[in-house]
Design a protein around this nucleic acid. Structure first.
Length: 462
RNA sequence: GGCACCAUAGCCAAGUGGUAAGGCAGAGGCCUGCAAAGCCUUCACCCCCAGUCCGAGUCUGGGUGGUGCCUCCA
């Protein structure tokens, strides 16, 4: 029985889908810049949820948005549109910016074995839907017009704040909020913004030229593709207080009832014990990790080792440990793969399978499931174990079928390095250990390690 | 200031109230001319105090410490 933690109730709940196909909406990226590894953790989390659902036999219809308009620098609905800012700075049109970073994002998630949701929805492809959505909210009395846009009137939605459980009045009293004079309540948020003439992305609407508010896209596209009540909505924990509260307000105002059964949120990643953010400049991209010699799937393994609801402290030491573990895992699995004749007792296999199933069904406890995998891998080599590991990999997504002998490719060296290595090999063959060891030190000084085996040697970069 | 979450070995990290998974690092051993790699073995009583219970890392209360949110952020 699958149990999932619901942010709304703050409890693990038995998962009961509304219909035959699980409907799931995931907040996607705002494509104004490269995704950093903290962003990517959230999509690994989304992917794990999807994989567990599928492992448990569910069909999924998932939607992920690509925000390419309307995400402003300030949440008080002031400031510049992030897309427009990037556009100005990089001297490209917002559409070019969006296309470029969307492409990079798609490549990143592919490298991390993150399966693409069934529907990828771009905000700018749904402007008309959003306008209609806003019109309905206005008709129902939830929206009002000011000189710079249409705002949602949260006083009409008494349950506002139920997801984050924050007391609005207390929050506002203690925070520095730029009060927009025309807003009836400081927490009222924009459904539609009227555009200044220089704003590049703008569309015709009943309220003149403008562009949608950031929050409306998710409510609109979720409703359009998945209907008025969906099973699961995922996102990062940072979205709980504002973005998701606003979504709830919009959606429930329109439908008159609950629209999401289970809210799931992935915790943040920290860097060296503190917060990671673009503004602090301590973020890394997947490409930067690769430059430092880390494979994308080592990063995925790193993420999988911590439960999605716990903060994950990123350090290179930790990533190094993950990469070592991941490589050894693959090497050990290769041994199981080629051990065709050895069998493992069916009861034993059943035990592992059950332990694995219990782990993933307990709110996607992947770290525990990894523990089961390791325990299993440490058993005597057997092809049965290899097969079961591949079954588990439907959830891990670690490309365990690519298990191969631990073999680093022969590196290219210059002729003089090669000459020293050859000379050392000859000395070694003549059992001239002193000379052999001396030449090994010479190579070490030049940055090469030499590894002997029965019938040859291999050079490695140190 | 308000709210929330967290606190397990050198590091990372699981843990339905019954005497602490797993990984990395370390140590010892096997292998090796010596190493490296690999393999085997080994390594914690769970922040503090009080309480509930036959029994608590696991529940309750208090304390201390950390992180996050309330302001763009996955």
């Amino acid at each position: 029985m699958l149990k999932l933690y619901n942010t709304l109730s703050r409890e693990k709940e038995e998962f009961k889908p509304v219909g035959k196909t699980v409907t799931m909406y995931s907040c996607g990226p705002t494509v104004y810049s490269y995704a950093h590894i903290g962003n990517l953790r959230t999509y690994v989390f989304m992917d794990e949820v999807r994989r567990v659902l599928r492992y448990d036999g569910y069909k999924i219809k998932g939607v992920m948005n690509i925000t390419d308009v309307g995400h402003l620098l300030s949440d008080g609905d002031d400031g510049e549109d992030k897309m427009e800012k990037a556009s100005r700075e990089q001297k490209k049109t917002p559409w070019e910016i969006a296309e470029y970073y969307t492409g990079v994002f798609m490549k990143d998630i592919a490298l991390l074995n993150i399966g693409k949701p069934e529907i990828i929805a771009k905000a700018t492809d749904h402007i008309q839907d959003m306008i209609e959505y806003v019109e309905k909210l206005v008709e129902k009395g939830y929206g009002y017009e000011t000189s710079d846009g249409i705002y949602f009137d949260i006083s009409k939605f008494p349950e506002y704040g139920k997801l984050s459980r924050l007391n609005l009045e207390d929050q506002i009293a203690g925070a520095r909020v730029e009060v927009n004079g025309e807003k009836r309540h400081p927490a009222d948020f924009a459904l539609w913004k009227k555009a200044a003439p220089e704003h590049i992305m703008q569309w015709k609407s009943p309220w003149g030229m403008g562009f949608p508010g950031w929050h409306i896209e998710c409510s609109t596209m979720s409703r359009k593709y998945l209907g008025s009540l969906i099973d699961i909505h995922t996102g990062g924990v940072d979205h709980i207080p504002v973005h998701h509260e606003n979504e709830i307000a919009q959606s429930e105002a329109l439908e008159g009832h609950k629209t999401v059964n289970t809210w799931m949120h992935g915790e943040f990643m920290l860097v060296d014990g503190g917060k990671m953010s673009k503004s602090l400049g301590n973020t890394y991209t997947l490409a930067q990790l690769e430059e430092k010699g880390f494979e994308p799937l080592s990063y995925r393994y790193f993420c999988l080792n911590t439960h999605y609801r716990k903060k994950l402290n990123f350090t290179f030491e930790g990533l190094e440990a993950a990469q070592t573990a991941y490589r050894r895992l693959l090497a050990a699995l290769y041994e199981h793969k080629i051990a065709k004749d050895v069998k493992t007792a069916p009861e034993k296999l059943q035990e592992y399978k059950e332990a694995f199933q219990n782990a993933i069904d307990d709110d996607i406890n992947v770290p525990m499931a990894l523990g089961v995998l390791w325990t299993m891998v440490k058993q005597p080599y057997s092809h049965d174990i290899y097969d079961l590991a591949l079954d588990f990999d439907k959830v891990f997504g670690l490309s365990l079928d690519k298990a191969r002998p631990e073999e680093k490719p022969e590196i290219e060296v210059t002729d003089d390095i090669r000459a020293i290595a050859e000379e050392r090999w000859q000395a070694r063959k003549n059992k001239n250990w002193a000379e052999s060891d001396r030449l090994r030190d010479v190579l070490a000084e030049k940055g090469y390690a030499v590894l002997d085996s029965k019938d040859g040697y291999k050079l490695e970069k140190k």
